[in-house]
Amino acid sequence: MISLLAKAAEMVRAYARHPDPRVAAANVIALLVASNQPFYPLYLFWLVSDDITAAWFTFLSTPFFLAVPAVSRRNGAAGRALLPLAGIGNTVLSAWLFGTASAVEIFLIPCGVIALLLFRPRERLAALAIAAIAFGVFLLLHDGYGPPLSAYDAAEYAALARLNIISASTLTAFVALLFSGMLAKAERSPDAAGDKKTG
């Protein structure tokens, strides 16, 4: 059993691996999000309500997150762009499913942050465009979703909002730690050491 789990973990690591650290980061984030999606209905059931009908529709975005490493192998920029765009799409879907009272739109923040971090300065236009989409979605759609598929009472919406705020905050913190590690690794590289000596 342990050997099977180890083999599965190595397969996942191999799927996420990429020589470009920003692409590798996008792959790791995408697979993390996809691996957590099956637990969302359980969190909803335990913490909010036994009405989890709407949660099953969130799986429509799972294939897009799982596809990020595959797309990245063909085109690194396209793979990096797919991750925040899939996140924005999932957020829009969830806002329609649960209503804006669920605070699910807070996931637009990590989507924008991820877009800004994944692209290099020379690719700033792509980063800003995707971040603008995240911001624009909130401005244009916030009051336009109509009645949600699942409606909850005030206490249940408060619990759902807490769940989404904690989840989005945790994702943002993970992304910050991931990129902090990348920066630390870059600072320890021979090129960076050479720059310090000559600077």
Rank of each mutant, 00 (worst) to 15 (best):
L139M: 14
T53N: 06
N90K: 07
K185P: 01
R73G: 13
G99T: 07
A70S: 14
A24F: 12
W96Q: 11
A186Q: 15
H142R: 15
I166R: 00
A26G: 12
F65H: 08
Q37A: 12
A192Q: 12
A55Y: 04
V23D: 03
R74I: 12
L125G: 05
V92L: 13
V71D: 08
A16E: 10
W56K: 09
V104S: 12
N75H: 14
S167N: 12
I114T: 15
S102K: 11
P147A: 15
W46S: 08
A159K: 14
V68L: 09
V33W: 02
A127H: 03
G181C: 12
L93M: 06
A151L: 06
L66H: 04
P19C: 03
P63V: 06
L141Q: 09
S61G: 14
L118V: 03
S189N: 10
L125Q: 07
K196F: 13
G89H: 03
A54L: 03
A186H: 14
L140M: 13
I106D: 01
S189R: 07
L32R: 03
D191S: 08
T198K: 15
P41I: 01
L160T: 06
A81R: 05
A101Y: 07
R80N: 04
G99Y: 05
L178M: 10
A14D: 14
I165F: 08
